[in-house]
Design a protein around this nucleic acid. Sequence first.
DNA 1: CTGAAAGCGCTAACAT
DNA 2: ATGTTAGCGCTTTCAG
Lengths: 344, 344
Amino acid sequence: MSVKKEVTIYDLADELNISVATVSRALKDDPVVSKKTKKKIYELAEKRGYRTNYFARSLRKQVTNTIGFMIHELNSNFANSVLLGVEKVTTEAGYDLIIAHSSESYEKEVANAKNLFNKRVDGLIAALSFDTKNYDHFKWFSDKGVPVVFFDRVEQGNGNTVVVIDNYKCGYEATRHLIGQGCRHIAHVSSNLARNVYADRYRGYRDALRDAGLPFDENLVLIDNLSENAGIVSAKKILEMNPVPDGVFITNDFVAAAFIKTLKEHNVGVPGDIAVVGFNNDAIGHLIEPSLTTVNYPGIEMGEVAARALINHLKGTSDIKQIDTVIINSGLIIRQSSLKRTEL
Amino acid sequence: MSVKKEVTIYDLADELNISVATVSRALKDDPVVSKKTKKKIYELAEKRGYRTNYFARSLRKQVTNTIGFMIHELNSNFANSVLLGVEKVTTEAGYDLIIAHSSESYEKEVANAKNLFNKRVDGLIAALSFDTKNYDHFKWFSDKGVPVVFFDRVEQGNGNTVVVIDNYKCGYEATRHLIGQGCRHIAHVSSNLARNVYADRYRGYRDALRDAGLPFDENLVLIDNLSENAGIVSAKKILEMNPVPDGVFITNDFVAAAFIKTLKEHNVGVPGDIAVVGFNNDAIGHLIEPSLTTVNYPGIEMGEVAARALINHLKGTSDIKQIDTVIINSGLIIRQSSLKRTEL
DNA sequence: CTGAAAGCGCTAACAT
DNA sequence: ATGTTAGCGCTTTCAG
């Protein structure tokens, strides 16, 4: 219970009658130190309960061994998957992670960026908030030469490295799938179209309609905040349309689940009356009824790839500046909620 | 793009022809510094883009302003809620958070503890892994006077502060509710009974049976790992029992959802044939059909309370040693999956 | 292969 | 109200 004094390399050096320089080198496993002295030092360090003082080291070396992770929220399956992937890679590489989430607020995002900047992270992995308007707060980092990797919700085409899925292709495929099931009035439930992810899926949706010779009707596009409530509201809106759509592409599984539940409460059949395709491949998708057709969105891989790119850059193994975009595999997972045609 | 030299308090002091001590004091908003000099200093700091060097400060002050968060996994609703609560409080208090998760492995838990110990966290918030056998790795902290707060899965009665819900009561109420619905053969699906949370719910289950004059049958207790697959396997096992149970208390909503789905696939009615009560109040509970009766498990509050206790201790506002246990409110949420009696 | 010593940027005791 | 200075523990250059 008594708090003992912290052991330093000076203590070790004194006790062994050698210099701190040698101890320091030995602790770094510098090959220049003889095996014999190393062994002595390791043993004593262990015995005395020596711990490296990372602050002294950081102060001296001018690196923090810390990576910042900025995300819009932390309460979704997807966000947590990414975090998991990032955490895995950074931990293995010996970096600490500082997590900052903005609750989808631009102001908080800026504040978080400032904080991480002041904390002097060695690198940054970031996804944008719902309503982020400009990107000045990321310039702080690039101005100091701190590398930034964006994932998922990204600012594209500014010389940044981004890690994404092909949202356009996914939107296109989801819609084409619904068309293939015989749907002719396909609605789209999405979120802020200023964000690349939603904009791209939306483009895919439109192009799939166009390519199938179906008219585009902007009244069939519902924009909301992807809350559970948005699913309920959208369902009600759609049931009041004339004609009622026979297919819906929703950019979020949770919203889709609430949507389907609401339809069922109104005795509307899924997929019979309305076929539904979600997005994200959340675990909820195969637990609800009917099971949900969705787009696989591999958060863990995304996190791993983003973190790996950043760390390789920091360690000098590769240069992030050379990488503009990394596209992660994704694809449609067909389940019951969209299968109007039973010839499966 | 050019990387400029970092500005220090010496630069500011030089430029203003004052001493670094004054600059340091001003930056801490020490009242002893005159308003006028403070203003000058603030302005110049802003102008020159000064950032505090936290490493120098930590080195000097011998505090890290960092809190460790140890958890068994990061992929559940509950875990993320706790993290959210902890993060909120620690961020507001100006502490960094280092997150370490053990994937339910004792070995990794020990490794994580070692890492956090070496990183010299000022305090620790921890939940135990599935198979943690002993607690020596927490002694490192107490030996150095680093405060530890346990939550949820805890080691009780060792002078530690723990934050929990009343698992016994919840288990009791869940079971009594099923009994009240007319169930007479009630199964229990749970996990490692060495962990307090499951052990306590199990005790509640047994006592509720006993108090209702129902026999306890250990064959009705299924222990698994709370994976989705565990729900499927348990359902199959239960359907093979003779007689088939008419009620099941499952200590996890996700497992319960998979369980119910499996029952439905076997054309077994819920709650008609088998009434089900889950645990955790995950969002999935009200999206599946029938909606799931469950026990509310307020992760965010738990995280907030744990973090607040720790930080108040660190700041000297209160003494954690005086607090043995904090019990967070929890309670049954009755939905359709358990309502055999329709007189709702 | 090892040692001496400077210095990373900050805080706080002591002095004025 | 402000200044001087030692020292937190480490890394690294330079010297041997």
